[in-house]
Amino acid sequence: MKSINTAVETNKIIRFFQDLGTLTRIYLLLSFITFSVVFIIGALMHLQNKISIAPLSTINGTAATVPTTVFLDMMTTQIPVLEEAPTSTLSQKNISKFLFQILSGINPNNPKSLVALAIPGMERETPSLLYGGDAASSISPVEYNPPANVFQQGEIPSTTEESPPPVASEPTPINQLDENKGSKSVFIYHSHNRESWIPELTKVTNPDLAFDATKNVTLLGKRMKESFDKLGISATHSNKDYPSSVKDFTYPKSYQYSKLTVKEAFAANPKLSYLFDIHRDSQGRSKTTVTINKKDYAQIYFVVGEKNPNWEKNMEFAKKIHDKINEKYPGISRGIYGKNSNGNGEYNQSFSPNSSLIEIGGVENTLVESYRTIDILVEIIADVLKDAEKV
């Protein structure tokens, strides 16, 4: 009986449309299509406002992920002189792989990337070059999680007492700011406070084990604060040791721990304006060192957290420092990179538009080389602060 009633109703609807004139039917059809288009566009605009677009989907991030050979092959199609290239990357197979990786985040040549998307903390995406480097030859910053037992008591013998940390000879002179230029407060901290360097540790040759309870990146933060103090710039430094102070410490949660440190700093001084999270990279010496005037310096990476809704402002802040430091000391900064990992991707940078994560050198640099870079970094940041005060 139910099916009979449904058939009757359907027949009524069909007869109704048949009774309508041709123009009326066209009008109703166009009205329905217009309504559908407007609805779909409205829904897409609503989703666009809700979803934070990462730089990877913009020209900044995407262009940096395209191999140089692809650009060369594209140019070959328009410049006959370049047709001597022996092979072409613009094959259907290569283009399909590239598009698949851009859209899905899965590397077809690396099956582990599929697993990494499903397991929090395992993702190791390649940072996208946002500014200041050559996409063709850029060397992205690298971070590896240390073994789980490396922070257990006794696993990291302190070497500071046996060999005190050296200081950089002939520190770079820094121009003094005016006395009234110290109103902006600087906060320096370290999410990975035990990151150390192989040349400064005894009996350590494995980069994954280059962590130390006392001889670590907190020394760079201390040097940074002292340099700001000499300029009359208000600076605070946290050398908090998370492995020993946090119950059930786990390395992947480092930025959760340091976030509490930043909150405590703001509670103590609401006028904080500039935040610097100082790290060292995990790459070898050849990729993190530059020679200027016959002296070796640890190179710098700036990292921007793309999950921060206002990441563009943090990038602009890093850009000011990058441009000034490379203008005066060419090659010190390797560029600004964006990260949007499942594990972090924000890096406490939503606290201030003047917040930056800075990698100083790598695991095979020396403390002296890192100190040299810190000295000129403070010099440049002081100039940026002075420009901000003028504005």
Rank of each mutant, 00 (worst) to 15 (best):
V167T: 12
F151Y: 15
L209F: 15
S138Y: 11
E170N: 14
E143H: 09
N239A: 14
E155Y: 07
E143Y: 15
K203D: 15
F187H: 03
N180V: 00
F228D: 06
H237I: 00
E155F: 06
F211D: 08
T205H: 10
L129H: 08
L209M: 10
E179T: 13
I198D: 06
P127L: 04
Q176D: 10
A148T: 07
A148M: 13
P157C: 02
E195R: 12
S191F: 01
K240V: 15
R194A: 06
W197A: 11
T205I: 07
T160N: 09
L209V: 07
V167N: 08
V217G: 00
L209C: 03
P127F: 07
S185A: 15
K240F: 13
E143I: 13
V150A: 09
F228K: 00
L201D: 00
H192P: 11
S234M: 02
D178T: 02
D241C: 07
D134P: 09
T236C: 01
K181A: 14
H237Y: 11
K240D: 08
I174G: 05
S128R: 09
I198W: 07
P157W: 04
D241F: 00
N145P: 10
N145G: 05
S158G: 13
P147K: 05
V167M: 09
P164I: 10
S191N: 08
E162G: 01
G132M: 02
K247N: 12
Q176I: 01
P165K: 04
S128K: 08
V186F: 00
Q153M: 01
H190E: 05
S245W: 00
T160G: 03
L177S: 05
K247W: 10
N149G: 08
W197S: 12
K247E: 15
N145D: 14
A213D: 11
P166Y: 12
K181G: 02
P166W: 08
L231I: 11
P171N: 02
G221H: 05
N206G: 02
P243I: 02
P146N: 00
H190S: 12
T218S: 08
K203Y: 04
A235I: 11
L231Y: 09
P127N: 05
A210W: 02
H237Q: 05
A210D: 09
T160A: 07
N149P: 04
L201F: 04
T214A: 06
T218D: 01
P165I: 14
G132A: 04
D212L: 06
Q152L: 09
N149T: 11
T205Y: 10
Q153S: 14
E200Y: 04
P207H: 05
K247H: 13
K230A: 13
S163V: 15
W197C: 05
N239L: 00
D208Y: 14
T202P: 02
D208C: 03
H192T: 06
E170G: 11
N149K: 13
S185C: 06
F187G: 03
A168V: 07
K184H: 13
